[in-house]
């Protein structure tokens, strides 16, 4: 299925501003004390790194950043023709007793976050898990609610949201795409 760009939702300055605001909100709520950021692979990790840099700018100390691969925790494994690639989890710090902020690019059905919470719990018992997303596009299928949102974006189910980041795509922007076959 091919798709075409319908609209640009965030450009590079707006994206950066959204991350700055999320960083301030995290610091305000948690005081920067004992906070750790855990990005969901792949773009969530990049966003977590950027938020950590911003928190370092505000607080003087950079919170630790981990990377979570949720493949082994998915609920749709046997619905797929072949197994998705496992990319490995790297969380080089104990999460027990910590405030862990999960970071992802797009919040959609909530199933990824459900899997991420299960994965995180298997690594230890965080004091609090919060959720930061760059884009919340609605259509939740599970009772999951983000704590920090870069942009609320009402979408239709047939559209998709593409988050492009410098590190992966050479450019910072968020766009809505719609299928061309209609």
């Amino acid at each position: 299925m091919t798709s075409r760009e319908k609209a640009q939702v965030l450009d590079d300055t707006a994206l950066d501003r959204a991350l700055t605001r999320i960083a301030h909100e995290i610091v305000e709520q948690a005081g920067g004390e004992g906070v750790a950021l855990v990005g969901i692979k792949t773009r969530g990790v990049t966003l977590a790194e950027r938020i950590a840099e911003k928190i370092a700018g505000i607080e003087g100390t950079r919170p630790p950043v981990g990377a979570l691969d949720i493949t082994l925790y998915r609920d749709d494994l046997r619905l797929k023709a072949e197994q998705p690639a496992v990319r490995g989890t790297e969380i080089p710090f104990p999460i027990k007793g910590r405030t862990v902020v999960l970071v992802d690019d797009v919040l959609f059905t909530g199933r990824t976050i459900r899997a991420a919470m299960d994965a995180l719990m298997d690594l230890g018992r965080p004091r609090i898990i919060r959720l930061a997303v760059l884009v919340d596009r609605g259509h939740r299928e599970l009772p999951i609610r983000p704590d920090y949102i870069g942009k609320n974006l009402p979408t239709s189910r047939r559209e998709s949201v593409a988050v492009m980041l410098r590190e992966h795509d050479g450019v910072d922007r968020v766009v809505i795409q719609e299928p061309t076959d209609s």
């Binding site: 496992v86 490995g88 298997d122």
Partner: peptide, 17 residues
């Protein structure tokens, strides 16, 4: 397999896959 190795380093060595 390289990714699976991380599981061996955990306190709880189990994933629900």
């Amino acid at each position: 397999a390289g990714s699976m190795k991380e599981i061996a380093t955990r306190e709880i060595k189990k994933v629900p896959t």
